[in-house]
Computed example of a mutant assay.
Amino acid sequence: MDPRIREHAEVIVDHSVDLSEGDDVVIDAHPVAEDLVVALHELVADRGANPLVVQDRLGERYQRAFLRNREEFETPGHVEALYDAMDAYIAIRGNANVTETSDVDPETNAAYQQAQQPLLAERLSKTWNLTQYPAAANAQLAQMSTEGYENFVWDAVNKDWDEVREHQSQMVDILDPADEVRIVSGDTTDVTMSVAGNPTLNDYGEKNLPGGEVFTAPVADSVEGEVLFDKPLYHQGREVTDVYLDFEGGRVVDHSAGKNEEVLTEVLETDDGANRLGELGIGMNRDIDRFTYNMLFDEKMGDTVHMAVGRAYEDTVGEENEQNDSAVHVDMIVDMSEESRIEVDGEVVQRDGTFEFEEGF
């Protein structure tokens, strides 16, 4: 076994979920990630915890078969009971075919996601971690060799996360007490939003692995302006390009996409909260230096910001503010490397990807 797999497992168990004796942990993984699952079992055993492997959320062929043969969905009570009983949840991305569900109707996917919402809420209420195994199919999607993708993933995952936390805390200190944020990129993106009263979180590899962002939630009805997400979105096995959203009073009032616009439309029409922003994130991990069609990595890239339509994370919403609720949470990325700036309460804090606390600002 590649020693980097064991190091990856150690980061998950020791840093991300910090398992204790007697903990019941669910590991959701495709068979292509078997080596990482094996390494996790060794460490789980050392800590006296109890593992159970499922292939629920991250399934492929059988999930496609289910979705293509059913139109109405209900929340599965037995899965909800499992999530209620567990102490920790580890989800490992890794695919045999990244486009397996690309011929499932977007409307069916939206209905399925709505039925899954209580499961999502239960998972997010527990200790959880989402990470990536460098499977060949994901390497192919990233247009990389398998070896090159392995190096890319493990360089991004196996690092000094305390050092990352310290660096990113400088941006947290700027954003956390702020009232208003403005994002400008070229002549295609100019959007403002209030973040007043909403906490800013420092993602340094605990819930998402790799980490490398700071993020918060906009005040639900405050978003105004337009955004062109110039990095592609890969959703439901389809590539959606040049996503354009126009916001008024916090809601999307106009949208378009250069490719697969119907996928975007179905996302925005999933439920009442799907056409409002649930997250503003600022990418700060410069070890992620290329776009790979994998949002777990792409949203962390340095010189980017991302915004998610749909569900806001509970921890990013202050007690006095409304949490945007939705069955979806779909991130999209704006390149901030050129002709771009982030303003916080009227002050420029990032220009062309460089922060005010970095050399060359």
Rank of each mutant, 00 (worst) to 15 (best):
L130Q: 12
V184E: 09
T188Q: 15
N138M: 12
H167T: 12
A137K: 04
V172F: 01
N208V: 01
F152M: 07
E147I: 07
F229P: 00
K231V: 11
Q132N: 14
G225Q: 04
V157D: 01
E224S: 09
A220R: 14
F215H: 06
G148C: 01
Q140P: 05
T192A: 14
P232N: 07
E166P: 10
D221T: 10
F229T: 00
D160E: 11
V219R: 00
D230R: 04
H167V: 10
E147V: 10
T188W: 08
R165Q: 13
L175P: 02
M144V: 09
G197R: 01
D155S: 15
N138G: 13
E147D: 15
T131H: 02
S169P: 09
V181Y: 00
A220Q: 14
L130N: 14
F215D: 01
L233P: 00
N158Q: 08
I174Q: 00
L233Q: 05
V223C: 05
Q132R: 15
A137P: 00
A142D: 02
D230V: 08
E206V: 15
W161N: 03
V164S: 11
I183K: 01
T192W: 02
Y149A: 11
V172E: 06
E206N: 11
V153G: 05
K231F: 08
D190T: 03
L130Y: 13
V157T: 11
Y133T: 04
S169E: 13
V191T: 01
F152C: 06
A220M: 13
L228V: 15
E150A: 13
L175S: 03
P218I: 15
P218G: 08
I174F: 02
T188M: 13
D187I: 02
D203Y: 06
S145F: 02
K207V: 07
R182W: 05
G205E: 07
P134R: 04
D160I: 10
A220I: 13
E226L: 04
P210M: 05
E224C: 09
N198S: 08
A136T: 14
A178N: 05
T188V: 03
S169L: 10
N208A: 12
D155W: 03
D190W: 01
L141C: 12
L228A: 12
D230P: 06
V184F: 04
G205W: 01
F215M: 08
V219T: 08
G197D: 09
D160Y: 08
G186A: 06
N158T: 10
G205S: 09
A178K: 03
L233N: 01
E226R: 12
D155A: 12
G212I: 01
V184I: 15
E226V: 11
V191K: 03
R182D: 05
K231N: 14
L228F: 09
L228R: 08
M171S: 13
W161G: 02
D187S: 13
Y149Q: 10
A220V: 14
E166D: 08
F229G: 00
P218M: 09
R182F: 07
P177S: 05
G205L: 03
L233T: 01
A156G: 10
T189I: 04
V195A: 03
P177H: 04
K159F: 05
W154T: 10
L175W: 01
V219S: 04
A220D: 13
G148D: 10
Q140W: 00
E166N: 11
R165F: 11
Q170L: 12
A217L: 08
Y149F: 15
V191R: 00
D176T: 07
A178Q: 06
A139P: 03
G148H: 03
D203H: 09
D155H: 08
E224T: 09
